[in-house]
């Protein structure tokens, strides 16, 4: 690398006409290399996790770290998926909870966002303010009363304890409303004159326009449900109901010295989010950049 750098610099200073542009290109390459190096450094914990999941117990803490194991051992991954504490049921539970919650959350949020932005009715603004103000309440305040409430409703220690509250997202209403406001009123007026009511306008006019923000909300909401540990920890008791984060925790508690197994299980817990992220990256980053707050 170094000699090339020197000659490139020398050459560019000789051919003065191109010096600025070439200098910039070189600068760009160097900056990219530095940024790439830092990025890889940041992701080393993940590399370590995957590499450890394929090693033998004796190799776990080899130092200097052997990033690529000499022999790939699949036993730990097999154990995670087919062993006594298998991840299949955690996956099924997590998918069930996350999918139902997300579908409900997106549907209810879209309805409410439409109501709060494009229908006039008495008391709309104060209702929206009350609605938004609930975003300020930290979840820690709600855990104890929700526990009492869920016992009383008979949904404690069932998936409904995660799904029912999960179907309401204040952030989602806020996000979609922000978008609905930007759709010109004339579109609704035209549809209205053509005889469409609000339900029709919502379904046939506004929703098709809102595909991108709907995708953003779907992906973000799904990822929050998939990663939710706190609610599952508090409201689920039976192991058969465990979602992935709880299952992972339990796996670690029961195999506390099986570091390879731990890392294989951690990998298993992360795979779906990697897939979701790679598929919906654009929407996630847009959603985050538009002021998303986790949770």
């Amino acid at each position: 690398m170094k000699p090339t750098t020197v000659t490139a610099r020398g050459a560019s200073s000789i051919r003065k006409g191109h010096s600025v542009r070439e200098g910039l290109q070189l600068w760009k390459v160097l900056l990219t290399a530095v940024m790439l190096g830092m990025g890889v450094l940041l992701l080393l914990p993940f590399v370590w996790m995957i590499s450890t999941s394929f090693k033998t117990p004796l190799e776990v803490f080899d130092f200097p770290v052997q990033w690529i194991p000499e022999q790939f051992i699949w036993r730990h991954h097999q154990n995670v998926w087919t062993g006594p504490m298998n991840f299949v049921s955690f996956y099924v539970n997590s998918l069930q909870v996350s999918i139902i919650s997300t579908v409900g959350a997106v549907a209810f949020a879209a309805l409410a966002a439409y109501g709060f932005s494009r229908v006039k009715f008495r008391g709309r603004e104060p209702m929206f303010l009350i609605y938004l103000s609930m975003m300020m309440v930290p979840p820690q305040i709600l855990f104890v009363p929700k526990f009492v409430l869920f016992e009383w409703l008979g949904i404690y220690n069932t998936h409904w304890a995660l799904i029912l509250p999960g179907m309401f997202t204040i952030f989602g209403v806020f996000l979609l409303r922000q978008f609905f406001i930007t759709v010109p009123q004339e579109i609704s007026e035209a549809a209205f004159i053509d005889g469409a009511g609000h339900l029709k306008i919502f379904w046939h006019v506004i929703l098709p326009l809102a595909k991108a923000p709907l995708a953003t909300l779907t992906i973000l909401d799904f990822s929050w449900h998939w990663n939710d540990y706190e609610n599952a920890l508090i409201f689920l008791v039976d192991k058969s109901l465990y979602t992935v984060p709880l299952g992972l925790q339990n796996f670690v508690l029961e195999n506390s010295v099986d570091y390879n197994g731990m890392m294989a299980a951690a990998t298993a817990a992360m795979i779906p989010m990697i897939v979701v992220f790679l598929l919906g990256q654009r929407f996630i980053i847009e959603g985050i950049a538009s002021g998303a707050v986790k949770g």
């Binding site: 949020a109 009715f121 609605y131 309440v137 009363p145």
Partner: peptide
């Protein structure tokens, strides 16, 4: 003009937020 159907649009969310945020907050 004012459309009472607006209440229907926000009803599910208002119920949910009352049930899982407002009431628990007051209970707490």
């Amino acid at each position: 003009d004012h459309h009472p159907i607006g209440y229907l649009f926000v009803l599910p969310s208002m119920l949910g937020i009352t049930m899982f945020y407002l009431v628990p907050a007051l209970m707490s």
